[in-house]
Design a protein around this nucleic acid. Structure first.
Lengths: 216, 216
DNA sequence: TGTACATCAGTGAACGCGCGTTCACTGATGTAC
DNA sequence: TGTACATCAGTGAACGCGCGTTCACTGATGTAC
């Protein structure tokens, strides 16, 4: 793989040198512009400055490119969630909330990745690597829920899987209903982050796990 | 408007008599089959057994048909939610949970409507009637949250708008991640309904509003 | 009840377009000797 | 270091397709008198 650092020099020869990455970049821009369904293979080739047959050297078809965008998205997602969870520091409550905020931040900052991951209808089993990346992302939420639940007295311990699914559902719900700047969506009298944080606080208190700094 | 009760007799003359409704029906089937982006105007005309120009007598364009599907969806949604809420009977806790279950049931039983309403990228402001129908649906959730919050002592009363948004977000999150039978989605060790019910219970307990029959 | 006419809701042919995909090809790169 | 050759990553022309949309049209319906 040779990096031509395109964008500056521009002058590329017969070989692009970096087409695979360029196509993924193009796909991200196009998805951001027109949504995952409005993006076409030909369009991606065009904005990479390459003939419409060229992408077939790198991706079996349109679906495969989309799946790769999703896979990279999950990998990035996992990194962001892991960094926010930070092994439960300074304490599991705070870290749990930070993880939720990181979820929303990802959906907001990487809307194209998020679309490809959750809204484009990409089959997670199309590529084993994709499935694995998705699982690793979820494992971070699961791990956070485990640590949190371990704090509860053994006889009143909530199932960690359930807790992780609740966090996921609430984060996804907020992200997809209110999280992005798209017009059709509903206006809120508060930031999505605040809404999620409040929701997580109420939820944790309901688990009998205190509410972090504010206590219970 | 003349109803030809199609499906049985079949033998229709030059005039379809019921084309508008037939196109909406066709759109629902096609969306269920191929998703909201895979559905085409021409396809809808074809499955209504009519020339590809005919739909223009009833809808400005493809987008307008989709918007109408969404509008009808919101109207049905509101009915279902209202029926489940049932004016807070037998008691607000039970009715609140029932409303959540009705949300999931709608998403499961009317997946095409649900797609058109929340996933097809239809602009809610494309048609004032659409916006109004969407607002009326949300108003049911809002009303339920109001009644619930009114039970809390005035000095510890949670903001009802927030509570309604939390219910909405969790319901939508669960519906869209786990709610439908689509393959790409994650398998759950429990029914989505149970997951939502458990989440709502924990949440209500966190609000200090008891947990319904199980108490707090 | 009958007739003339306006209106309505269809037809079907045609258009331009962009897409996905294929094909034989060719220029550039890397490597064996 | 030079040369021959295999491999790789592009080209560009071509295809068939379905879509959205338009147009002049026509058959059916409803209504005024």
């Amino acid at each position: 793989m040779r990096w031509s650092k395109d964008g500056s020099g521009g002058k590329r020869g017969y070989h692009h040198g970096n087409l695979r990455e360029a196509l993924i970049e193009a796909a991200l821009s196009l998805i951001a512009e027109k949504g995952p369904s409005g993006f076409s293979f030909a369009d991606a080739a065009r904005s990479a400055g390459v003939s419409s047959a060229a992408p077939y050297r790198h991706f079996r078809d349109r679906e495969a490119l989309l799946a790769d965008v999703a896979r990279l998205g999950f990998e990035l997602f996992e990194k962001r969630l892991s960094a926010a969870w930070n092994d439960g520091r300074p304490d599991p409550f705070t870290a749990f909330e930070a993880t939720g905020r990181a979820y929303l931040a990802f959906a907001r900052e990487e809307p194209s990745h998020y679309s490809a991951m959750f809204e484009a209808g990409v089959d997670l089993d199309a590529d084993p690597e994709l499935r694995r990346a998705a699982d690793r992302s979820f494992a971070v939420l699961r791990q956070a829920a485990d640590a949190l639940c371990a704090l509860a007295p053994a006889d009143r311990r909530p199932p960690a899987l359930m807790v992780s699914l609740h966090l996921w559902a609430m984060s996804h719900g907020i992200a997809s209903l209110f999280g992005r700047g798209d017009s059709g969506r509903r206006k809120l009298p508060m930031a999505p982050e605040e809404l999620l944080e409040a929701g997580v606080l109420v939820y944790l208190r309901g688990l009998g796990l205190g509410g972090g700094p504010t206590g219970s």
